[in-house]
């Protein structure tokens, strides 16, 4: 390795480390703030490491956010599960059983994932009131499932498009019909697709703020709404807000750390590539 090459390597790593540090700054601040005892919380020393580890801030934030964290999890799990089931069958049909006009219909469905929800919000609220689901978690779950149809169908359709049609042909010759082919061939091959979609819908529904703030009341607030409310309050100190933000981020962060590979795949699927 020449000197110039070695030098450019050092510069490259230095640059990457510098960038990484700046990307981690917000998390660092949330973490050290959260781990300080109340006595050590001080704006002047906010960047310093704690002298003594304590969980005061996390405990107080947890106290305030726990009911809402629970709401979030109760809402997100069924939403993600049902969404991915629907996405899977839709993806199967739209990739392997294209009826006349299927591509046009699919494109019309896809449009639904790009719209600003402000353009459907008023009718949505009226409708949810009409069916008596406004202000309930099942109502919020239903909304996440319906507006999740475009993206979940897209991810599954692209995933199934990679599965060779010859396997299905073979299955057909053996006498399997549309449902049999799905049940015995496609579904067993779908596990990675399901992981991607489950993670994607989990993150989307968990991180949502707009639907939640409009369709739920204080008691059913998911954690995003509760956190925003806490941050706007004059009574709750900044240190508790920081700890709360980290707490609220924890479920999706854990999913990302444990299953990052699949998370990125869902991310890329959102970028279409018809």
């Amino acid at each position: 390795m020449t000197f110039a090459r070695r030098f450019s390597r050092i510069v490259l790593y230095a640059l990457l480390i510098l960038l990484s540090v700046s990307y981690l700054l917000p998390i660092y601040l949330m973490l050290v703030t959260g781990l300080k005892p109340f006595a050590e919380v001080n704006l002047q020393t906010m960047w310093q490491l704690p002298n003594r580890i304590a969980f005061d801030n996390f405990l107080e934030a947890f106290d305030k956010l726990w009911p809402h964290l629970r709401n979030s999890l109760f809402m997100v799990l069924p939403a993600a599960l049902i969404s991915s089931m629907i996405g899977s069958v839709n993806g199967y049909i739209f990739s392997k059983w294209k009826f006349r006009g299927a591509d046009l219909i699919f494109t019309l469905i896809l449009f639904g994932m790009f719209i600003p929800y402000q353009s459907i919000l008023i009718p949505l609220v009226q409708f949810m009131q009409f069916i008596h689901l406004r202000g309930t978690l099942p109502g919020l779950i239903l909304v996440h499932i319906i507006y999740g149809i475009p993206i979940t169908s897209l991810i599954f359709r692209n995933y199934y498009a990679q599965i060779s049609t010859e396997i299905l042909e073979a299955g057909r010759i053996d006498g399997a019909g549309l449902i049999g082919l799905y049940r015995w061939i496609m579904f067993p091959l779908s596990i990675p697709g399901f992981v991607v979609v489950l993670i994607w819908q989990f993150t989307q529904a968990y991180n949502d703020f707009l639907f939640a703030v409009i369709l739920t009341n204080t008691a059913q607030w998911p954690v995003t709404v509760a956190l925003n409310n806490m941050a706007g309050s004059q009574i709750v100190q900044w240190n508790v807000q920081m700890a709360g933000a980290l707490l609220a981020a924890l479920p999706t962060l854990l999913v990302y750390i444990l299953l990052g590979r699949f998370f990125v795949r869902g991310l890329m699927a959102g970028a279409l590539k018809g």
Binding site: W238, A245, A248, Y256
Partner: peptide, 30 residues
């Protein structure tokens, strides 16, 4: 062709997993 490419990649990507509300609350103080 770096060593530790995956590590750096995860660091630049992790904010994607957060909600805009969390980002907003943290950055309001930053």
């Amino acid at each position: 062709r770096l060593k530790g490419e995956g590590f750096f990649r995860s660091i630049f990507l992790f904010p994607m997993a957060l909600s805009f509300i969390v980002t907003g609350v943290a950055w309001r103080w930053l």
